[in-house]
């Protein structure tokens, strides 16, 4: 449906974008770097939803649970096993991916609302499981410390810039990987599965296996973003992954457009920007305590509904509409 970009061209684009980010990172303050790290992290989480829902047609409401799995795996690797943070992030993706593989085996049997219900139940129950095991640190959680930036970057290199480098680089590499994956045979079979599962099966696609694969990869991506998220907030605890996170990310995915990955950064930006906008709006006009605290939620919700009503297939679709038929 969209014209394919060659792998070489895409790689160049990603490197160029990374270069822009690098230059940008030197020119903005710590606050912007910190917010930028969140944008990168959310964009990665949204990528995992687009892969799962937009490409393989499985609706998951439990992405926050998979992020939690990755976050705990990463934190345990760094904090308990004392390994390098990079290995921690790698383990976050790997463990969440394996967990997703097991979950995907169940999920592949379920359709639409049944899968939504199962993942929803997972999202509320999994974080509370952390309270069961002392090693997971119960309500207080465990620290997730990537350490200070390496000394060779110099004295001026702030912790926030280090956060930004790690999250932006990890997200770029992962999104690049997924974008490439989706432009191969896998991407085509995923789309076939999404658009018409029966026709896909008749064409010789192993639908069950493909769904499980999508679930596993998506979980891995979500796990990595979970690891990045708790890196930014310096620790992992059950309360870091509320159900509302799953819903917000789903909203981000809809704003981005479920069909392609081009807009994920937009989705991340929206999720970070909305509370900021609400804050500045409230400080301007003032209001009751109820008004101040509920305004961000109101704006996000309104945006969600507007996105569904006006650009049901993503912003890109509006431009492309005249190409259809």
């Amino acid at each position: 449906m969209s014209k394919q970009v060659s792998t070489k061209k895409r790689t160049l684009l990603f490197v160029a974008f990374g270069w822009v980010l690098l230059l940008l990172g030197d020119r903005v303050g710590d606050l912007e770097l910190y917010q930028g790290s969140f944008v990168a992290t959310y964009a990665l989480a949204i990528t995992s939803i687009i892969l799962l829902t937009g490409y393989s047609g499985q609706l998951s409401l439990g992405q926050s649970a998979l992020m939690a799995v990755g976050a705990y795996a990463g934190a345990l690797t760094i904090f308990n096993a004392g390994l390098h943070p990079i290995i921690g992030l790698f383990m976050a993706a790997l463990v969440a991916g394996v967990f997703g593989l097991i979950l995907g085996l169940i999920a592949a049997r379920l359709s639409g609302p049944y899968l939504a219900g199962t993942t929803l139940a997972l999202a509320i129950s999994l974080p509370t499981l952390a309270n069961q095991f002392p090693i997971l640190g119960a309500e207080e959680g465990i620290v997730f410390d990537v350490g200070l930036p390496p000394a060779r970057f110099g004295e001026d290199f702030s912790q926030y810039k280090w956060f930004f480098w790690i999250s932006a680089l990890a997200s770029l590499i992962m999104v690049w990987f997924i974008a490439n994956l989706l432009s191969t045979k896998y991407g085509r079979t995923f789309r076939a599965l999404r658009d018409n599962p029966i026709a896909a099966e008749l064409s010789g696609i192993n639908v069950g296996r493909l769904k499980v694969t999508a679930f596993a990869i998506s979980s891995g991506v979500a796990g990595l973003s979970g690891g990045l998220l708790v890196m930014l907030i310096s620790g992992v605890s059950p309360s870091a992954f509320p159900l509302s996170l799953s819903f917000a990310l789903l909203g981000g995915a809809v704003v981005t457009g479920l069909y392609n990955l081009k807009g994920v950064i937009l989705g991340g930006l929206v999720l970070v920007a909305i509370p900021e906008i609400a804050d500045s709006l409230v400080s301007r006009i003032g209001g009751s305590e109820g008004f101040i605290t509920t305004l961000p939620g109101f704006l996000v919700s309104a945006l969600l509904i507007l996105a569904v009503v006006f650009t049901p297939n993503g912003p890109g679709h509006l431009i492309k509409r005249h190409h259809k038929k």
């Binding site: 909203g251 809809v254 509904i305 569904v308 049901p312």
Partner: peptide
């Protein structure tokens, strides 16, 4: 499109 599946949920 796949949005049909997800639109009611998001709405």
């Amino acid at each position: 499109g796949p949005i049909v599946m997800i639109a009611p949920v998001v709405a």
